[in-house]
Simulated assay, not measured.
Amino acid sequence: MTSMASYQPVLSISKPENKEENQFDIYEAFQRILKDEQMSPPLAAILALTEVIENSNAGTMFELVNALKDGAEILKHRTPNPISLNAGCELFIAFVTLLPHDSANFLDLKRELIRQGEQYAAEALTYRQKIADLAVGFIKDGSVILTHSYSRVVMQTLLLAHKRKRISVFVTEARPRGLGIKTAEALTAAGIPCSVILDVAVAYVMDKVDFVLVGSEAVVESGGLINAVGSNQIAIIAKAANKPFYALAESYKFHRLFPLSQYDLPSHNSKILAFTQALQPDPPGLMGQNPADHSGSADKSQIKMSPGLDPHPPVKITQEQICQNNPNVDYTRPDLISLVFSDVGSLTPEGVSQYLVGMFAG
């Protein structure tokens, strides 16, 4: 993993007054840091973990690492989709574990870890600009681009491309969260020709686009991509149409995870895509009646239904129910991805795997 020692601070995160360790709430700190719109979950997790160090009474490295792991577990269990923040926690804990140091005492070491964690988060905010500068070189004048949902780094790239070249953008609606609308509104306000398409119209529009450009929740060890649900089917359609599928990902989103299917993702649970229990209406004529009151020899023609009762009541399914029953992210296989643009360069999916090995090898 790249050392954090060379990074220079470019921001400061406001913190509340120090609390006793048993009063410190890492999730509260995480949510407070996320209020900065430029902060992504991995960076917010790193800064929250630096506050764990600041509030910890650990006297040894073993105790400190355990406190960090406990904090990471709290964040994981209290966040509905913990994938990207897991990547940040994983990176910071590996850094703390592998950091060579010559501190005179453990208190000085803790101060150094806090300083470098904050410096890394500050430097990491510049990664989107580096990625945008790199990716714009692959965008030709007059390009028609398809993007999905909302991504800060994709937005920065498209806005930069608009300053230098002529582009137009198709944006998926990106249900269930509908964040594609946010993207389209921002692009339109910037003067970029933009059109919102239904998620189910991706195949319809694919022949019109030059390439697909998406952001990421995480890039995993296989070189595959975890991103807003729908990314996988867009990649499949792009592959069938022989159109490049590019992903943009900051290196702090590289995650030591190796999913083999959608159901291996940490965000998956039994409530996703579950079948609702079908209604079992009473047989005609028995509405409101006790079956035990009628023997097999009873004349069913004499049993009358209660007035005003419908044996088949109407069923309504709300958008909220649909959202709760569907995933927010999905997994895209590495063979569907053309390139991953990152602050460490343009990588093939195989290159991502190699980089991850080196990053966590010290």
Results as ranks from 00 to 15, higher is better:
P244D: 02
L257W: 04
S222K: 13
I181G: 09
V214R: 02
I226W: 01
G178D: 05
L248S: 05
G223H: 04
L187H: 00
V196W: 00
V219Q: 07
Y246L: 14
A190F: 07
A241P: 06
K239Y: 14
V219D: 02
S222I: 09
Y252N: 08
N242K: 10
D199E: 07
M206Q: 09
L225H: 11
A247L: 03
V209T: 10
G215Y: 11
G178L: 07
T183M: 12
I234Y: 04
I192A: 12
K208E: 10
N227I: 07
A238K: 11
A240G: 08
L225Q: 12
G215A: 04
L248Q: 02
V220C: 14
Y246P: 06
L187T: 02
T183W: 01
A201W: 10
K208N: 02
F254H: 10
V209Q: 02
N232E: 14
L257C: 07
G178H: 08
A228C: 13
G191C: 07
G215S: 02
V209I: 14
S251L: 10
I236D: 07
I181T: 12
L257G: 06
N242Q: 13
L248D: 11
G223I: 08
Y246H: 13
A203F: 09
T183G: 00
E250W: 06
N227G: 13
K243M: 08
K253I: 11
E250D: 15
A228H: 12
I237W: 07
G180V: 11
I192T: 13
V200C: 14
S231R: 05
L198R: 15
F211L: 10
V202K: 08
V220T: 15
A189G: 09
M206R: 03
H255G: 00
G230W: 03
L187S: 00
I237C: 06
E185D: 05
T183P: 00
I197P: 04
V202S: 03
Y252F: 15
V209S: 01
V219R: 02
L257Q: 05
V196K: 01
M206W: 03
G178S: 06
A186T: 12
V219A: 04
I181A: 15
A189P: 05
Y204P: 00
I197F: 11
K208Q: 10
A235L: 07
A190T: 05
G215N: 01
L225N: 11
R256T: 10
V219P: 04
A201M: 15
T188N: 14
D199R: 04
V209N: 01
H255T: 01
C194S: 15
P244K: 01
I237N: 06
A201K: 10
I236L: 15
K239H: 15
C194N: 11
V202Y: 01
K182H: 12
V205M: 05
A186G: 03
G191H: 05
N227E: 13
D207Y: 10
L198V: 15
D207P: 08
R256E: 10
A240N: 12
G224T: 09
L187W: 00
S251A: 13
C194W: 04
Y204A: 09
V205Q: 04
I236S: 10
V205I: 09
Q233L: 14
K208H: 01
K243W: 01
R256N: 06
V196P: 06
G223C: 09
N232I: 05
V229H: 06
A241I: 07
P193I: 13
G178Q: 07
G224A: 09
K208V: 00
I181C: 06
A186E: 08
S216T: 15
A189H: 08
